Amino acid sequence: MDLKNRTIGFALTGSFCTFKKVMPEVVNLMNEGAKVIPIMSQNAYQMDTRFGKAKEFIQQFEEITGNKVISTIEEAEPIGPKALLDAIVIAPCTGNTIGKIANAVTDTSVTMAAKAHLRNQKPVIVAVSTNDGLSMNAKNIALLLNSKNIYMVPFQQDDPIKKQNSIVAKMDLILPTVKMALSGQQIQPILLGSEE
């Protein structure tokens, strides 16, 4: 399946260490013909970290996609009523955002985008990146795994010795996960062996 004539939302949340891994995946979606609408959580949009400056990520995201970043609840809300997207990717998706989506909390641009999009019964693709995926957030991940129209990018423990509870999606599997999600199928396997 190519992605011509498909519009994909691509949302970044605050797992800043993975931004450089997900930007090439935005390019991959576009190379398959997709129009990509960039979305950033308020933290991703505003915070400078040791991984880079917010302004630089915003500029890169907008230059790659050719579209202005959606960064507020007000900007994200029309995604639903106007049926703007065929799918939305949240990559990286922090444990905080996973917990909010799983428990119907809509207080950021990304959670509003997901909620608004889900009303149209279309896929939300989650690429997890969290230090508590195998502890406090395990229950929320399980809720998402059992939710209609939520699809997970395959994930693994990223450092099982030093960070036993930490999991991260294999970001280079975003494209095939999107393609399968648009056909109503979850890519398999979801659980991968650890990186170590």
Rank of each mutant, 00 (worst) to 15 (best):
V27A: 13
V27I: 15
N28D: 14
N28K: 15
N28C: 11
L29K: 10
L29Y: 02
M30Y: 07
M30N: 04
M30P: 12
M30V: 12
M30C: 12
M30D: 08
N31A: 11
N31W: 07
N31L: 14
N31C: 08
N31V: 11
N31R: 14
E32Y: 03
E32K: 10
E32D: 14
G33E: 10
G33T: 13
A34G: 10
A34N: 06
A34R: 04
A34T: 05
A34V: 09
K35P: 03
K35V: 15
K35W: 05
K35H: 09
V36W: 01
V36T: 13
V36C: 12
P38Y: 08
I39Y: 08
I39R: 04
I39P: 01
I39E: 03
M40G: 04
M40D: 02
M40Q: 05
S41F: 00
S41M: 03
S41Q: 06
S41W: 07
Q42N: 11
Q42D: 14
Q42Y: 10
N43R: 04
N43M: 11
N43S: 14
N43A: 15
A44H: 00
A44R: 00
A44K: 00
A44V: 01
Y45C: 06
Y45G: 05
Y45L: 08
Q46Y: 06
Q46A: 14
Q46C: 13
Q46T: 13
Q46W: 02
M47A: 10
M47C: 13
M47V: 11
D48V: 02
D48A: 03
D48L: 02
D48S: 05
T49G: 01
T49Q: 01
T49Y: 02
R50E: 12
R50A: 12
F51W: 11
F51V: 09
F51H: 11
F51I: 07
G52M: 09
G52Q: 00
K53L: 06
K53H: 05
K53A: 06
K53G: 01
K53Y: 04
A54E: 00
A54R: 03
A54Y: 01
A54N: 02
K55L: 01
K55T: 02
K55N: 11
E56W: 03
E56A: 10
F57N: 00
F57R: 01
I58R: 00
I58D: 02
I58H: 01
Q59L: 12
Q59C: 05
Q60Y: 00
Q60H: 05
Q60S: 09
F61L: 05
E62G: 07
E63K: 09
E63S: 12
E63R: 08
E63D: 15
I64P: 06
I64M: 10
I64T: 13
T65C: 06
T65W: 06
T65Y: 08
T65V: 14
T65S: 13
G66T: 07
G66W: 00
G66I: 04
G66P: 06
G66Y: 03
G66A: 08
N67R: 05
N67E: 15
N67A: 12
K68T: 15
K68Q: 14
V69S: 11
V69T: 15
V69F: 04
I70L: 14
S71K: 13
T72C: 08
T72A: 09
T72V: 08
T72F: 06
I73V: 15
I73F: 04
I73Y: 04
I73N: 07
I73E: 13
E74A: 13
E74K: 13
E74W: 08
E75G: 07
E75C: 07
E75L: 12
A76P: 08
A76V: 08
